[in-house]
Design a protein around this nucleic acid. Sequence first.
DNA 1: CGATTATGATTAA
DNA 2: TAATCCTAATCGC
Length: 271
Amino acid sequence: MPEGHTIHRLARDLNKDLAGHDVTASSPQGRFAAGAARLHGEKMVKVDAWGKHLFCGFASGQVLHIHLGLIGKFRRKKLPAPEPTDTVRLRLVGDVAAWDLTGPYLCAVITDDDRQEVTAKLGPDPLRATGVRAVAAAREDFGARLARRRVAIGAALLDQKIIAGIGNVYRAEILFLLGIDPRRPANSLDEAEVNAIWDLTSVQLGQGVRLNRIVTVDPAEAGVKSAGRLKRADALYAYKREGLPCRRCGTEIEIMKIANRSMWACPTCQK
DNA sequence: CGATTATGATTAA
DNA sequence: TAATCCTAATCGC
């Protein structure tokens, strides 16, 4: 489930549960025993997300850097925490709840300098830009990064150096919603299209954080009261819908390969 | 109960 | 482009 919205939601939930508390850290699976030992008993100060990267800052100055990758999960457990499964790489326990990390692509204790090195390599994250000024600056940065690339826009949106936080679902959905053919070169988009991608990504990822899942279909279009009410099968326009009729025009959704991953698009709605 | 698949990203070829 | 890492839900038999 991890695209940018998942990570920002985790940052929010972890802040609520663990920030300001001393935590106990352990690695039931064993692979992160040394890291857990370094964090054990430390006070977590603040959790922060940038794209798909999660950073948990500690009073000691240590930073827990987590990337969930494709299959990683960070799950909340009520106290008293149940016996951990043998795949739990890291368990953090605070005063309010416990959190179990499984299958991360990356889990390491780093310094704040390391963290800055990591984020310096990432493109702007629409969920980080707040305020009119910051939004305008980030959006312009995004446009400049796109303009330098002639790869397909469908590939560019997956490139975390261009924009941080979009994954395979959102890239398909955002390009569908804006009627953009995913094969068009990134540097062929005009300013209005670039701005529209940035703004829509902000809105969609923001909704993803709120709902804690990806819903892009307009609830009014689907005849329900709110996006949260949409069932899994009705929540998306393009992703994994090859061969099915486009919800807008009825044309069969196509599947293609872009940047080594499956991509879905409506040949009629996306020119 | 085994095979398949996945909303990720890097490394090797 | 393909192989690789990690886990767990789902699906077909």
